[in-house]
């Protein structure tokens, strides 16, 4: 088993933390995992992204040309990664900021207005948790419960007061798919 995830969006949307949280969850569940950020000049405008690879064996490359999952926070990220997701893979799209539709028929597309939902909960920075909830509900490679436990274990102390809202965001993301 090996799954690759690219998280991509603007700086400040919680792209890096979303990937890290998935990585922590995988580690806590005893799996092999790598996380690698983009740290090049593209961080100043355009997209910031990170790659997460989860496997049950030692991981070679932390980067892949065609990840099995794309988690798309904004339009530039859609343009860049929608064509690159592996055949048979999965694309989770934040439709609050991405209006176009994927024309691919060889991937599974999950559309969710994650930033609107985050606003409803009270903080647009919860966009990342809504998307993670939607991802893991559709693809339970790791359980939502494990995700929440990892969040509690690894959230920075000065953000601990936001834990409950993060849980809400994960739950809203998860319920949306089948609503």
């Amino acid at each position: 088993m090996q799954e690759e995830f690219v998280f991509s969006g603007f700086g400040g949307q919680g792209v890096m933390f979303a990937g890290q949280l998935l990585a922590y969850t995988a580690m806590d569940e005893g799996l092999e995992v790598t996380w690698i950020p983009s740290y090049g000049p593209e961080m100043r405008g355009g997209t910031a992204h990170c790659f997460v690879v989860i496997s049950d064996r030692v991981i070679g490359s932390p980067l892949v040309a065609h990840p099995t999952n794309g988690i798309i926070f904004n339009k530039p990220s859609f343009d860049k990664y929608e064509p690159l997701v592996a055949k048979g893979g999965r694309l989770v799209v934040n439709t609050s900021l991405v209006t176009q539709k994927s024309l691919r028929d060889d991937i599974h597309v999950i559309e969710i207005p994650a930033t609107d939902i985050a606003y409803e909960i009270g903080d647009q920075r919860l966009t990342n948790m809504v998307l993670l909830g939607a991802l893991l509900r559709d693809h339970p490679i790791l359980s939502l419960e494990a995700l929440k436990q990892a969040l509690e274990a690894h959230i920075p102390n000065h953000r601990r007061n936001l834990l409950e809202k993060n849980y809400q965001a994960i739950a809203r993301g998860a319920e949306r798919i089948y609503a």
Binding site: Q20, M27, V33, T34, W35, I36, Y39, I59, P62, L63
Partner: peptide
């Protein structure tokens, strides 16, 4: 190299 420096793994 930059990748080893920047990446996280357990």
């Amino acid at each position: 190299d930059g990748q080893i420096g920047q990446m996280m793994e357990p």
